[in-house]
Design a protein around this nucleic acid. Structure first.
Length: 860
RNA sequence: GCCGCCGUAGCUCAGUGGUAGAGCGCAUCCUUGGUAAGGCUGAGGUCGGCAGUUCAAUCCUGCCCGGCGGCACCA
């Protein structure tokens, strides 16, 4: 008997798959069922980590399973290859970002191939290939024509050291995530995509994504943040400021509380505030507001400050009622209209503000059970349900009815309209970076901002950018931006901003359906393959990438380039790979591979293997370089083989949860691989004996068919860890039927079991499955073998052992024929001497028999 | 503060309205010609707590306790 040797076996089968091109997707063929399996493509950092191993193993199980089920499977791979790390490497080490990126891709491609994934590598591309980003420029121009692209001055996060705009998520505690410099607010001309045009549809169609995790849908819903309310204009009571003669427009979701208004507030960035800043006192106040940090903690604790402008407006329901207009730091310019009416009794922020500046607090919503005469709002605003009071024509209405009535009245007065407002903002896509997709636009002094004609695409990055200094290397390039205006032919300059890398990743899945097409997307190929049937990736993209991709899909569909309006029919978000952390007494982190364990008096201790220095076992955390708690796939593959690594990373936790990597765990998986092989290896070669009726063989056959059923259901429902638990149970069962000394009937049952088992483990441990399949004389490669079917008749044992309970407590068991009628079982049970003994002195009140499951006797 | 997830063997986790499971760890034994090992057997559980529904609750419902994650001045 030979030991299983993955070092020989695994490369052999990878070569066999590659040579026969089994993973190449078939041509789009109407009528042939397709399955598009996709994992979020990686950033080419140059090194595969365990998170990748988990992500791609999960996707591979799906792809291989669907292939075995007869689908025409598309399972491609590419590279999200633009972005800052390449520029940082370039700046720190003087390398060329392009060369650095492509070298990393080569390294990671080799590692991914080692994983034995069922990828169609013929479709591989990187987003930094001009052949890809040129097509992106192409549809960008289409969206421009549709009015979905615009340029606007806006306030952005500016990192003064890196000299670039930062996205909100790149600002950590008010500082640039890389430079650590305090982020400044700057006004810049920015490129935007009009994602807000789709805000309604993006929210509404979340309901149709029934194979997405609820959690992600909820997060997107919160992010888009639709709210229904009222937009209306206050009329001036004091003299109208210039330009605001038509009034001061505010937005509210609580028009029912209008009678509780005590002031009107505007954001420091509101145009009216800026106009009033001609007064130095106002200007000083606005400057004071800007000073506050941008971090959440600072915002939360920031004190509310305000400035009374001296202007007043009239209450919409009572012209004689005057409300003061304040500038207040807690009002956001980019939500609603940048102006609100303050109702302190029913809004905490307004209440804090009113208490500080001694403004009136008037309750107008009465909670159920409160007395209108005595109800008071103290330090806490009342935001719950109730009935309007102190509110004239709204009195007695509940909150919802009062909202409707208030909106109706305002509309009657022609002062405003019911409105839906979103929290979502337009997508700022310009980045001042050299390593990105150039925005295909030319600036002409005479003609303005002009799109590049399509026949001049792609606009390719220059080869010789200087990345030695921070800032935009593309803008710094001496000649690249010099061009001529496509309209007037005069001297002009190219746009030197590049696109956010999230643009690159918001349509790559569509390009995969035909990577050669002259158009950005080949309609026929996309119509066949799209949507992605199963998308697998990290939860960290719940909002950004997954929202942008949905938006771009809808925009491209409106452009006629796609027929689907949702890119991902099924989404699975996997958990992280974690590991224990280890520290020396001085706090220094220690790598797992340097650590040795011992168990002493039940307590697990760790020490440094070389020196014996005791170390502290810390918390289990996400694998990260800074805490040194990483295990590199390389070394695991080297010791245990790829299959054991895949198996372990899939086995330990439900896929959506974090999983904890441990050396002992992967060793367990490795032992399993060997035990599986031993079972195959011990089966005598030669044709399988024909099945014969035999009780022993039937027991194994029943278990085989139950395992097929259970494992199939586990794979279908993404419970891969349960599926693997089934494999362990099955192997334990199989060992009760050793090949040595087995009757022909049992050998036949074993052959059936092994044949099914090789196919069942194939999505998880594909190399082992091939070797096992070959060992028992399977036809062709297991990767092309059909998924085993189970015989429902065989999943049941002929004899069932039913537990017998007395008053809900287990008191014995009885064996009956499967499917025995409850009445017969009841007789058997009551005649059983052991049970009768248990019932002595009790009178039987009721006997419950659940067919094939259990018997319960109620007695007292 | 709001929303969500999780508490089952020493550890990491499956599971089910009806006999409580796997891997690792631990103990015992066997093998030492599968040996950078392999195998047998075993111990170990008020299924977070309390109440309710039920013939029967680890599972369903409610409340509580503990841990984790996301969002958060969005009017």
């Amino acid at each position: 008997m030979a030991r299983y040797n993955p070092k020989e076996t695994e490369p052999k089968w990878r070569k066999a798959w590659a040579d026969t091109e089994v993973f190449r997707a078939g041509p789009p063929t109407p009528g042939v069922p397709k399955y598009y399996a996709l994992e979020m493509f990686p950033y080419p950092s140059g090194r595969l980590h365990m998170g990748h191993v988990r992500n791609y193993s999960l996707g591979d199980v799906v792809a291989r399973y669907k292939r075995a089920r007869g689908f025409n499977v598309l399972h491609p791979m590419g590279w999200d290859a633009f972005g800052l790390p390449a520029e940082n490497a370039a700046m720190e080490r003087g390398v060329d970002p392009r060369g650095w990126t492509y070298e990393n891709i080569a390294k990671m491609r080799a590692e991914l191939k080692e994983l034995g994934l069922s990828i169609d590598w013929s479709r591989e591309f990187a987003t930094c290939d001009p052949a890809y980003y040129g097509k992106q420029q192409d549809w960008f121009l289409d969206l421009w024509k549709r009015g979905l692209v615009y340029r606007k001055e806006s306030i952005v996060n500016w990192d003064p050291i890196d000299q670039t705009v930062l996205a909100n998520e790149q600002v950590v505690d008010g500082r640039g995530w890389r430079s650590g410099a305090p982020v400044e607010k700057r006004k810049l001309n920015q490129w935007f995509l009009r994602i807000t045009d789709y805000a309604g549809e993006l929210t509404d169609s979340l309901k149709t994504l029934d194979r997405w995790p609820d959690k992600v849908r909820l997060m997107q819903e919160n992010w888009i943040g639709r709210s229904k309310g009222l937009k209306f204009s206050f009329r001036w009571a004091s003299e109208a400021p210039k330009g605001f003669e038509s009034g001061l427009e505010v937005y509210t979701t609580r028009p029912d509380t209008l009678y509780g208004a005590s002031f009107v507030g505007i954001a420091p960035e509101h145009p009216l505030a800026e106009q009033l800043a001609a007064d130095p006192k106002v200007a000083a106040f606005i400057a004071e507001c800007r000073k506050g940090g941008a971090s959440e903690a600072e915002i939360e604790t920031a004190e509310k400050i305000g400035f009374d402008t001296g202007l007043t407006v009239a209450h919409p329901f009572d012209p004689n009622w005057r409300l003061p207009v304040w500038i207040a730091n807690f009002i956001l310019m980019d939500y609603g209209t940048g102006a609100v009416f303050g109702c302190p009794a029913h809004d905490q922020r307004d209440l804090d503000f009113a208490r500080k500046y001694d403004l009136p607090v008037k309750a107008v919503v009465l909670p159920t059970g409160e007395d209108p005469a005595s109800f008071q709002v103290g330090g806490e605003a009342y935001t719950g349900p109730g009935v309007a009071f102190n509110s004239d024509f709204l009195n007695g209405l509940d909150v919802e009815a009062a909202k409707a009535a208030a909106i109706a009245r305002i509309e009657e007065q022609g002062q405003g309209k019911g409105a839906t407002v979103f929290r979502l903002r337009d997508w700022g896509v310009a980045r001042q970076r050299g390593w990105g997709c150039p925005i295909p636009v030319v600036h002409c002094a005479k003609c303005g901002v002009i799109p590049v004609p399509k026949d001049q695409l792609p606009i390719v990055l220059p080869d010789d950018m200087d990345f030695s200094k921070p800032g935009n290397a593309l803008a710094r390039h001496p000649t690249w931006k010099d061009t001529t205006c496509p309209d007037c032919g005069g001297a002009a300059t190219r746009e030197t901003d590049t696109l956010d890398t999230f643009v690159d990743s918001s349509w790559y899945f569509a390009r995969f359906t035909d990577t050669e097409s002259a158009a950005p997307i080949d309609k026929a190929a996309a119509d066949y393959w799209m949507p992605v049937d199963q998308y697998v990736g990290g939860i960290e993209h719940a909002v950004l990438h997954l929202l942008y991709a949905r938006f771009v899909t809808k925009a491209l569909a409106d452009e006629g380039m796609l027929s689907v309006r949702e890119p991902f029919a099924g989404l699975f978000t996997q958990g992280m790979v974690t590991h224990e952390t280890y520290r020396r007494q001085n706090g220094e982190w220690v790598e797992p591979r340097a650590v040795e364990f011992e168990t002493e008096a039940g307590a697990r201790r760790a020490k440094i293997a070389e020196t014996g220095e005791p170390i502290v076992i810390g918390d289990v955390e996400k694998m990260s370089k800074s805490k040194k708690n990483t295990v590199t796939p390389d070394e695991i593959f080297d010791v245990y083989g790829v299959d054991a690594a895949r198996l372990f990373v899939l086995s330990d936790s439900p896929p959506e949860r974090d999983t904890q990597w441990s050396a002992s765990g992967v060793e367990g998986a490795w032992r399993f691989v060997n035990r599986v092989w031993n079972e195959f290896d011990s089966q005598p070669a030669g044709p399988a004996p024909a099945p014969v009726a035999d009780p022993k063989a039937d027991e194994l056959r029943a278990f085989t068919h139950r395992t097929i059923k259970g494992l199939t259901e586990a794979v279908e429902s993404f419970r891969f860890n349960s599926g693997i638990a089934r494999m362990y149970e099955f192997l334990n069962k199989l060992k009760e039927f050793p090949a040595e000394g087995a009757t022909p009937a049992v050998l036949g049952a074993r052959h059936e079991a092994l044949s099914a088992f090789a196919r069942l483990i194939s999505p998880f441990t594909p190399h082992l499955a091939e070797e096992a399949w070959a060992r028992i004389g399977g036809e062709g490669m297991v990767v092309s073998a059909p998924w085993p079917e189970f015989d429902p008749a065989l999943t049941q044992d002929a004899v069932r052992i039913l537990p017998v309970q007395v008053n809900g407590k287990r008191r014995g068991e009885i064996s009956v024929a499967a499917g025995a009628e409850p009445a017969d079982v009841e007789k058997l049970v009551l005649n059983d001497p052991e049970i009768a003994r248990r019932l002595e002195g009790l009178s039987i009140k009721k006997v419950i028999v659940v067919k094939d499951r259990i018997v319960n006797i109620v007695a007292g």
